[in-house]
C-alpha cells in the first residue's frame, strides 16, 4: 500500500510487459510437462506463486515461483516426459525467472509509469534466444551420444563442471 495519496508516490510495482512475458514463459513450462501430472501440478503452483510475486513486486516470491517451475520440470524429467520437453521446461522456468526479475527491478528502479518497452523487449529477445540455443545444444548432445554413454565419463564431466563453477565464483571479473 502506498504511504498516503496514491497519486503522490511513484508506483514501483513490476513493469507490465516483462511480467506478462514471464507469466507466458511459466505457462509454457506447464504445457511442456503435461505428460507427467505431478510435474504439471508443481509447475501450476509455480505459476501461481510467480503471479502473486509479480502482483506485489516481491523478488523472493518471484524466485520461489520460478524455482517451482524448474523443480517441476526436473520432476517431469524423472517421469515419462520426453527429454526435449524437460529441456524446454527448465529453460522456460529460467526465462520466467529472468523476465520476472527484470520486471521487478525495472519497477523498483523506475516505476510502472515510465516507458520501459524498448529495454524490456531487447532483454527478453536476447534471453529467449540464449535459452533456445542451449535447448538445441542439449538436444543435439542427446541425439549424438544417445544410449550407452560410459558413466565414468559423465561423472568426470560432472566433477569438472562443479570445479568450474567454484572457480568462476571465486574469480569474479566484475568484483
Amino acid at each position: 500500500m502506498s504511504l498516503w495519496d496514491p497519486d503522490d508516490r511513484i508506483d514501483r510495482s513490476p513493469t507490465l510487459l516483462s511480467s506478462a512475458l514471464a507469466l507466458a514463459a511459466g505457462v509454457f513450462a506447464v504445457t511442456a510437462n503435461v505428460g507427467a501430472p505431478v510435474a504439471a501440478l508443481i509447475c501450476v503452483l509455480g505459476v501461481l506463486a510467480l503471479s502473486a510475486g509479480l502482483l506485489d513486486g516481491r523478488q523472493v516470491v518471484v524466485t520461489a515461483g520460478t524455482g517451482l517451475l524448474v523443480l517441476g520440470s526436473v520432476v517431469g524429467g524423472t517421469q515419462s516426459v520426453p527429454v526435449l520437453a524437460t529441456l524446454v521446461g527448465v529453460a522456460a522456468g529460467l526465462l520466467a525467472f529472468d523476465l520476472g526479475s527484470t520486471a521487478v527491478s525495472l519497477g523498483d528502479q523506475l516505476g510502472r509509469e515510465t516507458d520501459t518497452t524498448q529495454v524490456e523487449l531487447v532483454h527478453a529477445t536476447a534471453s529467449t534466444l540464449v535459452g533456445g540455443a542451449f535447448v538445441g545444444a542439449g538436444f543435439a548432445i542427446r541425439e549424438t551420444v544417445s544410449g550407452g554413454q560410459p558413466l565414468s565419463g559423465v561423472l568426470g564431466l560432472v566433477a569438472a563442471v562443479l570445479l568450474l563453477i567454484a572457480a568462476l565464483r571465486r574469480a569474479d571479473p566484475v568484483r
Binding site: V70, S73, T78, L87, A91, L94
Partner: peptide, 28 residues
C-alpha cells in the same frame, strides 16, 4: 539449478535431467 540438475541427474540416472543442466549452464 545447474548443480541440482547435475546431482539429481547423476543420482537418478536420468538423461533428461542431466541434460537440463546444459541449458542452465548456458544461461550461466
Amino acid at each position: 539449478v545447474v548443480l541440482v540438475c547435475l546431482g539429481a541427474g547423476v543420482i537418478l540416472r536420468e538423461p533428461g535431467v542431466l541434460l537440463a543442466a546444459v541449458v542452465a549452464v548456458g544461461y550461466a
